[in-house]
């Protein structure tokens, strides 16, 4: 990873992007709590498989310890899904583009208890990224940063293997930060404007973390109320999150 220039790293991260995904099942009107949640969880399950493949393609990720790889993905999966959703929706004010065949406006979430609050936060984040005219190169770097930064304050390494993996992770985080700085520098801004843009983009990640936490809470409630059966991988990722927080 250290041998790559920021530009080369951005190229690698762009190439790691998952393919466009389709739901392939029409969500029929009238929407119900169960049908909307079924579509959203079905999509999340498909996207999780692609996310693991994406993470493995980020230079240096598979050199981390398996335990770090697992923890990073467990901590950030919903943030990564949500940033992807925000990116797909950035040119569609007022709509959330889950897939090309599943586009919802905020009111269409009203049949699912508690989801409109989350839709509104996602739409607000999308509007902010629209204002900032987020570029694709910046988006892919931000998504990689979410992954690499996700468990920084959760686990503290103890064994030599864990310490080595943590050192690699920190180097990787620096490299992706440099890649983001490079992506911002291409826009012809002054140095001052570049620093401000970097701060604005990174500050939005705390908003994404907040919405993700709300989303985890919501999905746990839906699971407890048996609104929707959860698929194996999604269930595993949700359980990991609720175990960490409890």
């Amino acid at each position: 990873t250290l041998a790559l220039t920021p530009e080369q790293l951005v190229t690698c991260i762009m190439e790691a992007e998952p393919p466009e995904i389709y739901l392939m099942k029409d969500l029929k009107k009238p929407f119900t709590e169960s049908s909307v949640m079924m579509s959203l969880t079905n999509l999340a399950d498909k996207e999780l498989v692609l996310m693991i493949s994406w993470a493995k393609k980020i230079p240096g990720f598979v050199e981390l310890s398996l335990s770090d790889q697992v923890h990073l993905l467990e901590c950030c999966w919903l943030e990564v899904l949500m940033l992807g959703l925000v990116w797909r929706s950035v040119d569609h004010p007022g709509k959330l583009i889950f897939t090309p065949d599943l586009k919802l406006n905020r009111d269409e979430g009203s049949c699912v208890e508690g989801i409109m609050e989350i839709f509104d936060m996602l739409l607000a984040a999308t509007a902010r990224f629209r204002e900032l005219k987020l570029q694709r190169e910046e988006y892919v770097c931000l998504k990689a940063l979410i992954l690499l930064n996700s468990n920084m304050c959760v686990s503290s390494p103890e064994s030599p293997e864990e310490l080595e993996s943590r050192a690699k992770l920190l180097r990787l985080l620096d490299a992706v930060t440099d890649a983001l700085v490079w992506a911002i520098s291409r826009k012809g801004l002054t140095f001052q404007q570049q620093s401000t843009r970097l701060a604005h983009l990174l500050m939005l990640l705390s908003h994404i973390r907040h919405v993700s936490n709300k989303g985890i809470e919501h999905l746990s409630n839906m699971k407890m109320k048996n609104v929707v059966p959860l698929y194996d991988l999604l269930l595993e990722m949700l359980d990991a999150n609720t175990t960490h927080s409890s």
């Binding site: 995904i21 498909k46 498989v49 692609l50 693991i52 493949s53 493995k56 398996l66 335990s67 790889q69 697992v70 993905l73 467990e74 194996d232 991988l233 595993e236 990722m237 359980d239 990991a240 175990t243």
Partner: peptide, 23 residues
């Protein structure tokens, strides 16, 4: 349960050398 038991699918997909695709 051990970490590996709790995260069977995630472990399998991470360790699988072939490209992961949706089932």
């Amino acid at each position: 349960s051990s970490l590996t038991e709790r995260h069977k699918i995630l472990h399998r997909l991470l360790q699988d050398s072939s490209p992961t695709e949706p089932s």
